[in-house]
Design a protein around this nucleic acid. Structure first.
Lengths: 141, 141
DNA sequence: AGAAAATAATACCTCTGGGTGTCATTTATG
DNA sequence: CATAAATGACACCCAGAGGTATTATTTTCT
C-alpha cells in the first residue's frame, strides 16, 4: 500500500522500454509488445509514437516495421525515463505544496521530505533498463 | 526537485489543519483561515465543509461560527490526513503499475520501491499536527 | 422579530490524463 | 505495381480534480 505512484503513461513507458530491452537489437512490432505488456491497444499505439517523438525509441515504418531502443539498455536510467515522461509534473513544491519553501526558513517537514525524495531520485538514477531485465528477476509483464 | 507530491486538496488539508492546530481550542472563521493559508477563497470554503464531513474538523454554524480540530493536535498524524484525503488514490500498485505484483515473484524494483514507500509511510505516521507546528519551525503559511 | 454573520448545499465551469476511432502514410514483397 | 503490414496523424470522448458562483440555512445580537 503506497501513496507514491507515477502517471500511467510513465508506468507504461517502464513496461514498454523494459520489454524492448529484452533484445535491444530487435525491432518489435506493436502487436508483439501488446501481447506482453498489458496496455490498451490504441493507447499503446499512441504511447509508442509519443516515446518515438521524445527520442526514447526509434520507429521503423512500413512492413516489418516496429520499435527499438535508441540507446543501449544500460545507458537508459529510470530517472531518464521519468524526467522525459513527467516533464510537467516534476515539481519544485515542498511538502505543503508551496513553491517558495526554500526561500523562507525550513518548515518542519523540509529535511525529512527532502531525504525521502532524494533517496527516490537516487534509486531512479541508479537503476537502468539493464538492471530491471536481469535474469534473476521474473519478467515483469 | 521531486516527483513525489500529494493532491492539492491533501496539501491544502495539511495547511488548514496545521493552521487550526496553532490553537486547538479556538474557533477560526473561514476569513481568518483564508488570510494565512494561501488557498483560493471559494475552494477553501468547499474544502472546509469537506473536512467537516470527513470528520477531521468540527464546524460551528451561525454568527461567530467557524472550524476547529475534532481531536487534539497530537492525536492527528499526517498519515491520518493523507488516508482520509486520498481515499481513492491509495494504491496497491507496484512500481510498474501492476496490481497483482505481490502474487507473482518479485520484480527487480519490488524491494527498493517498498523500502522507500514504507519510509514515507513511517514519516507520515510519526509526524502529527503538533510536530509540524512546533515553535522551532517558522509558520509554514 | 429581524438583521447580520457565519457555514451548507448545489450546480456549474474548465482543463488534463487516459483512452478510443478513423484515416493517411510508409515500406517490403509477390 | 499493387497489396499487405506496419507506423503516423488527427480528432474525439469521458471522468475527475481543481476552482467558481449562487442560493439556502443556522445562529447571535440588538
Amino acid at each position: 500500500m503506497s501513496f507514491m505512484n507515477f502517471n500511467k503513461s510513465t508506468e507504461y513507458a517502464f513496461r514498454i522500454l523494459g520489454f524492448l530491452a529484452l533484445d535491444e537489437r530487435k525491432i518489435y512490432s506493436t502487436d508483439e509488445i501488446y501481447n506482453k505488456v498489458k496496455i490498451p491497444y490504441r493507447y499503446l499505439r499512441k504511447q509508442l509514437t509519443n516515446l518515438t517523438k521524445k527520442g526514447l525509441i526509434n520507429s521503423v515504418q512500413g512492413k516489418h516495421g516496429g520499435y527499438r531502443l535508441t540507446k543501449k539498455k544500460s545507458e537508459i536510467s529510470l530517472y531518464d525515463i521519468v524526467v522525459c515522461m513527467e516533464d510537467g509534473v516534476l515539481s519544485n513544491e515542498c511538502f505543503f505544496g508551496y513553491t517558495d519553501c526554500h526561500l523562507i526558513e525550513k518548515c518542519a517537514m523540509h529535511d525529512k521530505w527532502e531525504e525521502i525524495s532524494s533517496s527516490l531520485n537516487n534509486l531512479l538514477k541508479t537503476m537502468n533498463l539493464a538492471d530491471i531485465t536481469r535474469k534473476e528477476y521474473p519478467a515483469f509483464f
